[in-house]
Design a protein around this nucleic acid. Sequence first.
RNA 1: GCGCCCGUAGCUCAGCUGGAUAGAGCGCUGCCCUCCGGAGGCAGAGGUCAGGGGUUCGAAUCCCUUCGGGCGCGCCA
Length: 576
Amino acid sequence: MKEQLQQLVTAAIAQLPGAAEAGRPVEIDRTRDPQHGHFSCNIAMQLARPLQQKPRDIAALLVDKLPPSEFVAAVEIAGPGFINFRLTEAAFHAELRHILDAADSYGNSDIGKDESVLLEYVSANPTGPLHVGHGRHAAYGACLANLYAAAGHRVHREYYVNDAGRQMDILALSGWLRMLQATGAEFSYPEGAYQGDYVTDIAADLTALDEPPQHKVPAGFFADLPEDQDAALDMLIRRMRELLGESGFEQVHRHMLDAVLDDIRDDLAEFGVTYDEWFSEKSLTVSGDVQNALDLLAKNNVTYEKLGAIWFRATDYGDEKDRVVVRDDGRTTYFASDIAYHLNKRRRGFDRLVNVWGADHHGYVPRVEAGMTAMGEDKERLHVELVQFVALYKGGQKAQMSTRSGEFITLRQLRAEVGNDAARLFFVMRSNEQHLDFDMDLARSESSDNPVYYLQYAHARVCSVMRQLDERGLSWDAARAAASLSLLSEPQEQQLMLSLSKFPETVAAAALQNAPQHVVHYLKDVAQEFHAYYNAHKFIVDDAALRNARLMLVLAIRQVMQNGLRLLGVSAPEQM
RNA sequence: GCGCCCGUAGCUCAGCUGGAUAGAGCGCUGCCCUCCGGAGGCAGAGGUCAGGGGUUCGAAUCCCUUCGGGCGCGCCA
C-alpha cells in the first residue's frame, strides 16, 4: 500500500520543476488520527526550502499532478502542508485477499534482497551451561534472523566458539581435578576453577575414555602455589600440561569442550534456536587466518613492538588505547583472533556483519572497528547490537544470579519453569538495549495478563470459530466471501482491516531497526482489536454473505497472528 | 577520571530512525456473563516525556549541558 502511494507522489514530483532535483526522499507515513486519512506525506514541507515556496502551495501543485488511482478515495492538504490520503474500501479488500493468497509469506518483502548478512549471536564461552542472559541473546538473535529472512536478506546464522585460550584451559584443569577427586584423591579444589556441578558430571566420563588421563596426583603438585588466584591457576595448568603431555592435556581439553558445547547446542535447539555454522576460534589459528591478519596489519604499518609484545595502533582509529595482538611470550591475544575472525567473515563475501553482544562488551566495539578499518575494511559493514541484562523476578523478589559461585539460573531451568514460548516472547518483548525485568510468575500464568497467552489465544480463538463452523455443518466459501467484503462496514471491521494492512510495514521496520519488539506490540494491538470484535459481533451468522465476509476477515487475522508469532519464534496453537 | 547505554502515567514499558491532540498493559474506579471459549470486553481517572539550553516550519525523538541509574575501561575471553 505504502509503495503504491510512494509511486504516485514520485510521479507527481517528476512533473514539478526543480522538485526531483532536490533529492528529498518521499516518505509515506501512517497517520495517528483517522481524521487525517490513512496515510500522510510530508514532502511538501521538505521541499519548501529548496524550492523557496510555501509548503501548502507546493502541496497543492503536487496534488494537482497526482496520477489517478482506484485505491485513493480522497487527497487533502492539511496543517502546515501534509498531503493526506484516504484509501478506498477496495484497497483494503484487495489487501485482505492478498493476505489469504500470500498466506505464510504475507509480511515478507524484498527490501534486503541486495544484502547478505552474517548474523552472530550468543557465542557464549563453552565453559558451562547457558544462563538466562544467553537466553535473551538467543531469542533476540534468532528473531533477527527471521526478520532478516522475511525482509529478503540472505542470512547466515553463526556461533563463534571460543575454543582457544585460557578460560578453556581452566575448564580442562577443572575437569581433570574433579576427576581426580572422584577417584579418591584429596586436595582442596582451587577457588578460581569452575565450581558448577556440571564440571563434576562431565569429568566423570573422563575415566571412561579409551585412554583415561593420569589418575594419580604426584607429590608436590599443589605445592608452592602463588598467592594470586590467577597465577596459581596458570601454574596448575602448566603442571597439568607437563604431567599429561600435550596430547593428554588436549584429550581432556577436547572432552570438556565437546561435552559443554553439546549441551549448549541441545539447549538452543530445544529452544528453537539454530545455526548455519559453529565457527571455531581455534580454526583461525590452524588456517593461518590469524597470522594473515597480523601480517596485513604489519604491512599497513599499524603495529609496533613494546615491552616484548606486538601492539596494534588502535588509537589511530579512534580507540582509547593501543591493543596487544601478540603477547611477550609469543602467543596471540583473543583480540588478534577476533580481528582475524571479522576479516574472515568479510572474505566469505557477506555484505553486512551483525553481532549480538552483551552490553558489558560495549567497550570492545571501537576496538574491533579500529581493526577492521586498519585492515582496509569499511567499519560501517559491521553493526553491533548490544543486549542489556536480564533480572529475574519470582514472587516479587529479584532472583540472585552469581556466576562465580556457579549458582546462576540456567536457560534450561527457565525454560522448564515458564516454557519455551513465554521465554521467547518475554526476551524479545522489550528493546534489546533496555534492561529486562523478567516476571516469571507472569510468564507462567494462564491468564490474559500474560502476553503469550493473549496472543496465542487470539489465534486459537479463530481456530475455535472455524471448528464451530464445521460442527454446524457449514463451510467457508472463499469466492462468496471475496465478493461480499463490502458488507464489512462495522467500525471494528474497518479498523481491523487497517491494522492488518500494517503488518508488512511493521516487519520491514523491525528488520531495518533490529527491533523485534515492534512485532510484539503490533500483534498485541491486532489481538486486542480482534477480541473486542469477537465480543461485539457474531461471525457465524445466518446471512451467508455476511458470514463468509466476516470469516474471511477473521481468517486473515489468524494468518497475520500466525506469521507474526512465527517470526518471534513462538508457537501458534490451534487450541489451548 | 574517561567512554557507552538508559531516564516517558503509581509499576513494567511502546512511541514506526523529526510530524498533527504523547500511547499500551498492570494497578486503581465503575460497568458488561443464557453467547462462535470470561484464558474475554467497555468506560474513567492518572504526564513539567529527569532539569535547562539549542538546531527548525515542527523535538519525547537530533546536538550541548546538569542531575540520577546501569555497564565498561587486562599481554582474560
